[in-house]
Design a binder for these strands. Structure first.
Lengths: 220, 220
DNA sequence: AATTGTGAAACACTTCACAGCC
DNA sequence: GGCTGTGAAGTGTTTCACAATT
């Protein structure tokens, strides 16, 4: 999982802070306190201060954080300053939607190459990006300096595709396939399984099940 | 958010166990140990036993868990036995892809109604499901006994849509909009923010930033 | 006076280790 | 003998509370 003593959960919160800071820039706010960041993100102010302190002392006591400086520091920490190129593997329904979604939006992390192994799809375009055959991947990854990939292929193809990505030098993978894939110790993998998310969500609705009979557990 | 003594993280793992159990059924495996479940899921056997024990004693000491029985119990715990109807709100690129993805696959959690407020989309179909105007939502939710919704609308519309869902009786929301939405204490909300996921993933690639720490990469 | 940065305490989750049962 | 179920120990994360700083 994580690499130093910085919790993964803290890293996951950085982009949320970044989004608020971007909004603040538009509002021309120059200084923000952890209390105000807390109000806007829903996290506690202590947690925000602690998260930021993992990476250094960016604030000024008695004053707060300079929005421009903090924004820049978070960008630097995440490695977003020069923009990050991402490969999309799998141009089915989900992959195509993810591509459109991403291409229309953010600039700091951007899909710059799309791959599939279906010859019906290869050669077609999604928003000006041509769908390339998988064989091209190692070359394109090298040429574009791509280190991240989004995986949106069927379950049966997911681990094989992952292995190919890892061999090609990919270091981080966002996996939407409905199986957990293994980065073979070479790549950090974040799995997002939509079916699973929906199934676990069902637990939080009423009237579905035997969630009464837990007898003797003591609540904190 | 969470409802009591059972950790949310444990609930999130149940669907993973369920998927393995479904595979096992196809292989006609009738009994499985926590050790074998551990091998197939990547979690530890103790964790699996503990997760299952939160809900009751489903196994047999010295033997293991009956796959059919365990599968049924997990379905019951999650409330999946009779199938769960879900409303999709927002029929843009992402919403449409999520609908197609879901409609083609699983039967236990299924999108059964799609809503949008764009008159260009209303009346059109996604795989035989007609896109309905938002005004219809309360009626349809009541008629179909819908308790869950997937939210895939633009950021600016997300909180308003959430409030409308909560008013309409929705109890759990899977939010794909690029803002955290608040269930007003009435609905459990799971936020999945794709931009955020990509940004935090960038942290785990090399050479981008001030990450002095020379740790070993370990993926989950 | 205000707000950060941070040890210490509290809490949450995971792993250990073994008693209990088949 | 083998495997579950579970208190106890260990680890990770959040919250508390306050000294340090502007």
């Amino acid at each position: 999982m994580g690499r130093g003593r910085i919790p993964d959960v803290a890293v996951k919160r950085l982009p949320i802070y970044l989004r608020v800071l971007t909004d603040l820039k538009e509002e021309s706010v120059e200084i923000i306190s952890s209390a105000e960041l807390a109000r806007r993100t829903g996290f506690s102010s202590e947690q925000i201060r602690k998260d930021l302190a993992y990476f250094g002392a960016f604030g000024t006591r008695g004053v707060g954080y300079r929005t421009d400086l903090l924004s820049d520091r978070i960008r630097r920490i995440l490695g977003l300053r020069e923009g990050v190129n991402v490969a999309l593997v799998g141009a089915g329904n989900l992959g195509t939607a993810l591509a459109r979604y991403n291409l229309h939006r953010h600039k700091d992390v951007r899909i710059t190459a799309i791959f599939d192994n279906d010859w019906d799809k290869i050669g077609k375009r999604i928003d000006d990006l041509e769908i390339l055959p998988m064989e091209e991947l190692p070359r394109v990854v090298r040429r574009q300096g791509i280190k991240m990939a989004i995986l949106a292929v069927p379950a049966a193809a997911a681990q094989q595709a992952t292995d190919f990505l890892v061999e090609s030098g990919i270091e981080a993978i966002l996996n939407f396939s409905p199986v957990k894939v293994d980065g073979r110790g070479q790549a950090y993998v974040q799995n997002i399984d939509l079916t699973m998310e929906l199934q676990s969500l069902a637990y939080y609705t009423t009237g579905s099940a035997s969630r009464e009979k837990q007898g003797s557990h003591v609540s904190q």
